[in-house]
Amino acid sequence: MHESMTKGRARLRTAWRRIASVQVRMLLSLGLVLGFAAVGTTAYWADTATFTTGKIEAGSLDLQLGGRHPVTDEIQWQAIGLDQPWNYSVLQLDNVSPGESVAMELHLRNVGTTPLTFTGVGTSASNDLGTHLKASTWLGAAARNDGTREAVNRKGHCDNGTEAWWAGHALSTTPAHVTPNNRAVSLVPGASIQVCILAGLAAEAPNSIQGKSTTIKVVLTGKQVGTT
């Protein structure tokens, strides 16, 4: 009897120690969980990064025109700035007779910072000279003039051109394309080209236009590359 009671008490002590050990482990585990939770709510990583761009500046578009001075042979730039007109007095013929003509160089350059394309149309101020007022243009050609007003044998020449834009084109008050098929010509910043323009009366011009006159007007329109 005493032996059985002793064994029973021993089993109770063992069971209690096991239960106590489990409770301690549960409490320890709970404490660890709560401990990590407390740390997690008080330490968030954070960072900030900032960048600044370089200078942002609008570009410019400026198509300038110029001509070669007949005496100094230097290119003089006119129509400087935006939307500037230019009266090129070199291209004129007074007291002209049938078959006479005059040649001039038109220089164009892009002094802006933006690549551009340009097209142009030409007209005469009146139709007094009818279809007998002729004009020809060559890209890259140099202008040369022979003869005198007194001898009535003035003759213009466009030498060594790379492309014919007009060839004996009749001018009137109806606008006509300066470049073939109104094809746009490209100019990158700093680039320039020259065009030789030859204008005069056709050799078959009739007596009915004697004493009549007109002026030629060419309007060039430059646009930023990519626009329509």
Rank of each mutant, 00 (worst) to 15 (best):
G59S: 14
M1L: 02
G54H: 07
A191L: 07
W45C: 00
V218W: 15
H2T: 05
P206W: 06
N145R: 12
E57V: 12
Y44M: 06
G147H: 10
W77Q: 13
K134T: 01
G200N: 09
A203K: 09
V111Y: 03
M104V: 15
T137M: 10
E150N: 09
G168D: 15
T162A: 11
T50P: 01
R109I: 02
A203I: 09
W138P: 00
G66N: 14
C158F: 12
A142D: 11
T113Y: 09
L61E: 08
K217G: 05
W77Y: 06
L27H: 02
H2C: 00
S60C: 08
E3C: 00
G81A: 09
F51Y: 06
A43G: 03
G130V: 00
E163Q: 12
P85Q: 13
A205W: 03
D146V: 08
G66V: 11
A10K: 03
R68S: 12
P85M: 06
A202R: 09
E74Q: 15
W45Y: 11
A142N: 14
G8V: 00
G59F: 08
T137C: 01
G190W: 05
A142H: 07
G122N: 05
G168Q: 14
S208N: 10
G200I: 01
T72M: 10
G147F: 15
Q224F: 02
L187A: 10
K55R: 11
L93Y: 05
A164F: 01
G156T: 11
N181C: 00
H177F: 03
V33T: 02
G40Y: 14
V121K: 07
G40R: 08
A184L: 02
V22A: 14
T117G: 10
L30D: 03
L30N: 07
R183C: 00
P98E: 12
T119N: 13
S192H: 10
D73K: 13
D94T: 05
E150L: 05
G31I: 02
G81N: 14
R11F: 02
H177E: 13
S101I: 01
L61M: 13
G122H: 04
S172M: 05
G99P: 02
G226S: 13
T52E: 04
F51S: 11
R149S: 04
L65P: 04
D159M: 04
V188C: 02
I56D: 03
T52P: 01
I75H: 06
T72A: 10
H132A: 03
A135I: 09
N127Q: 10
W166H: 08
M104F: 02
S60Q: 13
A205L: 04
Y88W: 04
I19L: 07
G8Y: 01
L27K: 05
M5V: 09
V188Y: 13
R11D: 01
V225R: 10
N145Q: 07
